[in-house]
Nucleic acid binder design. Structure first.
Lengths: 346, 346
DNA sequence: TTCGTCAATGCAAGCGCTTACATTTTGCCG
DNA sequence: CGGCAAAATGTAAGCGCTTGCATTGACGAA
């Protein structure tokens, strides 16, 4: 019997396959098969092995497994933030859909920072992510170079750009924002403002701005007619931006917000300032996350297909990984949700 | 020159250390050192190696690295949900504190399900997590057995139980809930209700219930005086529970909620039902997440030290891993936050 | 010039697992 | 019972990386 060079199995430290095999009196190959394709092992052996696994509290070492098998069944997702619920429902759906196929999802957040996103991309890929779910198309060139080099399937959500070569599963931000801006204009508002997150490095924000402008231009208005405040992505910052806007000499009668989080901040601040919505000022959001329904008044906003994006992205990613498929972009619809926060101009 | 058995570096597939070493004309050891302890390598070599790394888009294979180095510098965190912001700020702080020490945080969610949590624990440990951050103490015995076997440092947050052997960094849920319930009673309310998430498998929820009862008992009331609705953990379910409560023959004048998410749902539903808060009914929350400030009226709730828990947990976990330290529980303070949702009994 | 020293580098043995291939066992048929 | 195919199991070669130890080469001192 050839001696195995492994250390003796110590109950208080992590057991290895070899430890299990020794206890069960079989080879490591048999243990491995027992775990990965039980049908190849005789029931009696299987039972013995499983008992050893249990006794030793054995759990496979993921790194070693990935190294040997060259697949991880792990996908990665990087979203700009996990501090609010904007991407939560979509991620949840993504995770559920992947779990059905036995795929684990690893999630990281980039804090709306392209460099941090690049780090996270490398991180997830190094950890063996077979495919990646990202938000938007706006990232560093080196991120794209890296992804390209490693041939990692990638799907971008929250955008839809058929002319881009990258595959996206999402919606047309510009069109959607134009829709809600047009609705605002239809309510007779003339003095308009937009609170947006930082647009540099965020294609969704830029497109939404453009969408708003599209609606204004259609009415013969120009960039000068839209007061823009660019700020961070938190509720608090939304509130601060709103307060700043309302303190100007000629405050807007309608404040459109780049997302529901900023809008919720604005509504909260309005209450604090004693400004009533929508009598004194109208406020609109974007995304239709749960908070939009909770605030008073409810937020008039753009509903985006959170769960649908997650599901379709999962399907696309799986196809791309399995079939080596190049992947195809999918456009999903958005729709206007009318609640109380948008009223006619005073 | 000894031939290396590796495949030729192909630009379109992931490069390995060996590929880099070949391109740079050095040994794999040098490349490895270049990446991990650059000071050991001469500047000229370093430069050459770095260029090769860059050209090839090389990124180390995490699994192989962990396998060889026997440390991952990765910690894991499992929270009950990522669909709302309850744990977000704490996780953020945890992540920041760990990042300062060069540690990566992997986050998973258990959907308030103990079995799923066990799966996630095994998952993260298999992936090489050196230490784990968990919520509460209520998990399957086999989870504890597993953790014990692998000697993984664990810190539980959101609870504080000095009598438990497990280390926790958090606060006394029972005391905190007693505090807010006492405040409700002090406002003259007699007909009370509690909306709570499922208590089985959730020690925080059970303790909060007990805390509420403590306050009632102190006034000579009994379990019969507290109408309890147990439901899920979403905003929607909070709203539904509230609606059910208000439709009873003798509706409560104060509805305490197990957390701010449920409370926000209740407030939203109140508006929908045309019930005014706090004139017709008072509502209280727990946790003091951002949403508590945004809803109308603002939520009277218990502020918990989100970021502090994250930071202290990080420190404890690091100490436990490095010094083999057993770890010590830390109690943090909560405080009552009075906003508009709690008023005097009608 | 000859050492000794030390910084820079290379060599090669694993880390824990999977899997192609080789070997043994089992069950059946003639 | 012998013989054979199929089932069960074992053997051993890596997967990509780190690191203890050996080797090389430069430089200053003797």
């Amino acid at each position: 019997m050839p001696k195995t060079p492994h250390r003796t199995p110590s109950p208080s430290s992590s057991a290895t396959l070899a430890d299990v095999s020794k206890v069960a009196g079989v080879s490591t190959a048999t243990v491995s098969r027992c775990l990965n394709s039980p049908s190849q092992v005789s029931p009696s052996t299987r039972e013995r092995v499983m008992k050893a696994v249990d006794d030793l509290g054995y759990a496979p070492n993921f790194g070693a497994q990935a190294l040997a098998a060259k697949r991880t069944n792990t996908f990665g997702a990087i979203v700009p933030t996990m501090e609010n619920a904007i991407f939560a429902r979509c991620l949840q759906a993504l995770q559920e859909a992947l779990a059905e196929q036995g795929i684990t999802l690893l999630v990281a957040s980039s804090s709306y920072d392209r460099d941090l996103e690049e780090t996270q991309i490398r991180n997830l890929v190094a950890r063996g992510a077979d495919a990646l779910f990202l938000i938007g198309h706006d990232r560093t060139p080196s991120s794209y170079r890296f992804l390209q080099q490693r041939q990692i399937p990638v799907v971008a959500a929250w955008v839809f750009e058929p002319q881009e070569p990258r595959v996206s599963v999402g919606f047309d931000n510009r069109k959607a924002m134009k829709m809600i801006a047009a609705e605002v204009l239809a309510h007779g508002h003339q003095r308009l403002a937009l609170i947006t997150g930082e647009r540099a490095g965020n294609d969704r924000a830029r497109q939404r701005y453009e969408g708003a402008m599209d609606a204004l231009r259609a009415k013969g208005m120009t960039a000068a007619d839209l007061q823009v405040v660019e700020t961070g992505y938190s509720i608090t910052q939304g509130g601060a931006a709103f307060s700043q806007l309302m303190q100007s000499a000629m405050p807007p009668t309608a404040v459109m917000c780049g997302n529901d989080v900023l809008a919720a901040g604005a509504i909260g601040m309005a209450r604090k300032l004693g400004i009533s919505v929508p009598q004194d000022v109208s406020i609109t959001g974007f995304d239709d996350i749960e908070i939009a329904e909770i605030v008073t008044p409810g937020l008039t906003t753009v509903h985006v297909p959170h769960r649908k994006m997650g599901r379709h992205a999962a399907a696309a990613l799986i196809a791309m990984r399995n079939e080596g498929d190049a992947g195809e972009s999918i456009e999903l619809e958005t729709r206007l949700v009318r609640r109380g926060s948008l009223g006619t101009a005073p």
